[in-house]
Amino acid sequence: MVTSLLDRRDVVSAFLKDRGQAAVVCGLGSSTWDVAAVDPNDRNFYSWGAMGGAVSMGLGLALAQPDMRVIVITGDGEAMMGVGSFATVAAKRPANLSILVLDNEHYGETGMQPAHTGAGADIAMMARGAGVADATTIRTDSELAAAVDSFHSGVGLRLIVAKIDPASPPRVMPTRDAVENKLTFRRTILGG
């Protein structure tokens, strides 16, 4: 019996505290607020829309920068909308891509309507079914600690679903100007 669910900001903070030079692509909504809150960084690309595209964006970036670790951080609703991209990623198997899905089983930005993952859908299992062999779900602090260790060590495509408390922490909003975000990100990643 789980007594307390993971806090979303604690999860994001745990995964990003040792990110080094990793680039982060955020899904829209709460995932973007989380990353902006715990680790504002010129190597972050935030989303305010384009729901369903975060994993595919991460794949494009991972293929373009094979020597750079790329981390996609997104929510369960965003991941479900782009669920086919799990198969696309699995077919390419980029060793430098890690995907973190924050699963609160709700659509947080639109009034906390119940989402599919609370009604039986298992994103880690769907990812494994799509061919992402290293896809696991974590629920506890000890599972989080173990997952963070493996997240940053070695190489290999991996996906972690973190079951999190549906509570919404205060919004921390990064720039909503995607051109500014793009230019800063590219300047940082590519130089010049």
């Binding site: 680039a23 692509v25 690309f45 384009a50 369903g52 595209g53 975060a54 994993v55 595919s56 964006m57 991460g58 794949l59 494009g60 970036l61 991972a62 293929l63 373009a64 920068q65 750079m68 782009g82 991209s85 696309t88 793009k182 990100f185 590219r186 990643i189 590519l190």
Partner: peptide
């Protein structure tokens, strides 16, 4: 569309 965007963010 998202793939091409990510690739461009990475210079490809």
């Amino acid at each position: 569309v998202a793939l091409a965007t990510g690739a461009w963010l990475g210079g490809k």
